[in-house]
Amino acid sequence: MSEINLIELGIAIMVLVGTIFGFISSIGFIRLPDIYNRAHALSKSSTLSVLFVLLGTFLFFVMVEGYFSIKLFLGIFFVFLTAPVSTHVICRSAYRCHVELAPESVQDDLKAFIDEYTCHP
């Protein structure tokens, strides 16, 4: 009985750590200056927090209930596969829509490239 409690406690702490990561990244989502920096906060949240929370759920159902769920594993894999793709696509569309970088920025190597290669009309 006490072993089960200890395992459950560890899993609950894992879930808590995951949600704290999500909370910190949402703070960054508010505080950071422009969209590209906010994308950093978003990609961190979606990887680390979902990794911790879904891995905690997976371990809970394996150890306590004795049920190996392949769906949760697929969910972790899918989030890992799609989070960077969506971040990249949003950032690219923002840059092609001429969203300005924050005034603190020190370097912009992409501007010359975009000027010579304009894909959109």
Binding site: Y36, N37, S105, Q107, D109, F113
Partner: peptide, 9 residues
């Protein structure tokens, strides 16, 4: 927040 963001090639 004192960051200096930028784009690298």
């Amino acid at each position: 927040i004192t960051i200096k963001p930028g784009i690298l090639a």
